[in-house]
Design a protein around this nucleic acid. Structure first.
Lengths: 107, 107
DNA sequence: CAACATTATAACCATATGGTTATAATGTTT
DNA sequence: AAACATTATAACCATATGGTTATAATGTTG
């Protein structure tokens, strides 16, 4: 990977919101409406963050009904040689979402 | 490391010029006047890049006479879990600099 | 079909970023 | 001391970034 490509990919990771999204996707695939209540930003802002991650090939999307679920592209992370395994654990946040009935069941 | 700190550090790495500087420092400590002819940007621009890397604790500086030499903070790179060992090899660029008499001898 | 739910896009705004030139600060050499 | 070499800082500029609100696009449900 050349310097420009790697810089672009790192830039896509260089944002606290996107890093937190990555940390969440390490636990579980998520759709946009699940992510929104975890951040104090608007739905379009979350949507734009997902676009940024998708353009950098860091996540994959798949539509399920009216939801768009995003999953981590772990191969890509390995490719760029960054181990994001030491990110803060967000399991508790997801558990709270579930309690509030904000996790989507679609299978 | 929390999300904000990691994002700041990754942002310091998310630039092709700074990645190339990191690649050079993996081979050899360098001073600003050695780096300038390797890039098509001004001396102040290189100086600002070094400030950015130093603020992120990714490099250390040490003055030797009128030169300021920068070295890689490898511990820091390990800390953030990024392996930049697959960057393009710039040994040839440094060899050409040496031929042009642009490498500083100060010991 | 109509109303609703979810996601994406458009237009806009304030701040950050990466460059420039000019100049100051620091150290060396004559 | 004066001239030179190296590096950092200041002031500025164009573009990128990350947010907003409004609205379009897509799919579901009554």
């Amino acid at each position: 990977m050349n310097f420009d490509q790697l810089a672009d990919t790192l830039k896509a990771l260089s944002d606290p919101t996107r890093l937190k999204i990555i940390a969440l996707l390490q636990i579980r695939d998520c759709c946009v409406c699940e992510l929104v209540p975890l951040f104090e930003i608007s739905q379009p802002a979350v949507s734009k963050h997902m676009s940024r991650l998708k353009n950098a090939d860091l996540v994959k999307e798949s539509r399920k009904g009216m939801w768009v679920f995003y999953s981590l592209n772990r191969d890509r992370l390995n490719e760029i040689g960054i181990s994001l395994t030491n990110l803060p654990d967000l399991s508790e946040e997801l558990r709270q979402l579930e309690q509030q009935g904000l996790l989507v069941q679609c299978d």
